[in-house]
Design a protein around this nucleic acid. Structure first.
Lengths: 242, 242
DNA sequence: TGAACTCATTTATCATACAATTAAGTAGAT
DNA sequence: ATCTACTTAATTGTATGATAAATGAGTTCA
């Protein structure tokens, strides 16, 4: 068990969270009662209840006397919670999830670039530059592409100096992980992306918000277009099977 | 006490959450120990611990043996949690918070309009249209402006058919509440806004994503510009005082 | 100096008991 | 029959007390 270092409550939170996000319990359905959960996990009511409370706090379930523990509507789920996001990833992410992630990333990252051009401090600029340096090394195999990519995107979000954008760094990082599962990128692709990011950085440094926004938007719409094509191809394939 | 209908645990969650978000405990600082909290609220350890766990699940605090209960860095806070957002509002929202909200709304709502133009179902379109009808009534005083406004924004987000955008309906609603505190809108303004929303709706209905995006973007940048001016004026005023 | 040990503090977990809530069933009146 | 009021049982909510585990800080000893 990979989670043996965590305490009991957190392990149960993890197990139940995974099951809920993977659809083992349908919406509105009852989970096992506290007593049953105690038996299943062989733990005390204290630990069980604390786990239930944590999942409640994340908006996944609701517990009431006599009614038991039920899965609430998915619109109440805190999809931007790090744990919830990771539980989603433990399932089998499909192209539709990838598209949803990209759609939100597009919206966020373009405006983050815009705001960075307006509000980035000197330190923020240095952070972006050093992330870009790592990306360049990565194209030569001297650094990890994925790590460098994450560092770059996080540095731009930080430079927006908006706490809400900053909080979404978790989300973006997770979205990039999903990306990684679908795109086995060639070095060539990475170089092109690197150049695009350099351009955005220049706009940010030169305090040209609209230019930074547009550049980021173009890059992301292109990525999204590729995924949309893949989905279209997939759906056509399904049609043929039927 | 307005929260007397809630159970004990949730009341404590609310009280502590408020205090943390209002800055009564600094980041890294220790909250009272479990034992102290039991005394302060005059409740059992069970209730106290469950409250602590819920706040932990929302990313506000961390509790470890010997170290106690500490406020974690704000970058870990789940700012998109409904409760956390409301605790923020219980403070005294300033123009900077309003700006942060608007910056994110701008990013989200423009792209939501784009996606709505691509993916809105017939029902989605009907929902937007009926929200617009409510807004029109509101300009005649026949419906509540604020409620109608919320309904409109929510209907566009729903029409994006992206679960992440849909989850952010809570956020947008809260952001609109903050808006309300600062802008005592004239009817005239509302009429102008109404027309802008009608235009966006037409673009969505006609499946013109880019047009919908641009229209939404223009409206929001204008709103943001006003707030930026107010902030600039405020900062200049402060300069004079010094 | 520093490594090993002890100790005290605080959270983590367990066990048990009772209270509160509420869905569902039951009895009684009309 | 059916509506109301009552009873019951299932489930979570809260309280209490005891013990375990983690860990920072001090203490001893080589």
């Amino acid at each position: 068990m990979e989670s043996s270092h965590r305490n009991l409550t957190q392990q149960v939170v993890h197990e139940l969270g995974k099951k809920i996000l993977q659809g083992n319990y349908k919406i509105g359905e009852r989970l096992p009662s506290e007593a049953d959960l105690c038996q299943q996990f062989n733990i005390s009511r204290t630990a069980t209840r604390e786990a239930v409370k944590m999942l409640t706090a994340k908006g996944l379930i609701s517990s009431r006397p006599r009614q038991g523990i039920t899965v609430v509507e998915s619109k109440h789920w805190n999809l931007f919670d790090v744990d919830v996001l990771n539980w989603i990833l433990l399932g089998k992410p499909d192209l539709y999830l990838l598209r949803h992630f990209l759609q939100l990333r597009l919206a966020l990252e373009a405006e983050a670039a815009y705001l960075a051009a307006l509000y980035a401090s000197d330190d923020d600029l240095i952070a972006i530059a050093s992330a870009l340096a790592r990306m360049k090394n990565a194209t030569n195999g001297m650094d990890d592409t994925h790590e460098a990519d994450i560092a770059y995107h996080q540095s731009v979000l930080s430079a927006s100096n908006n706490p809400f954008f900053i909080q979404l760094k978790n989300f973006i990082t997770t979205a990039l992980k999903v990306n990684l599962r679908f795109t086995n990128r060639m070095i060539a692709v990475t170089v092109a992306e690197y150049q695009a990011h350099v351009d955005i950085y220049e706009h940010i440094k030169n305090k040209k918000p609209q230019a930074a926004f547009d550049a980021a938007m173009v890059t992301q719409r292109a990525t999204l277009a590729i995924v949309n094509e893949q989905i279209a191809a997939l759906e056509q394939e399904k049609q043929h099977k039927v």
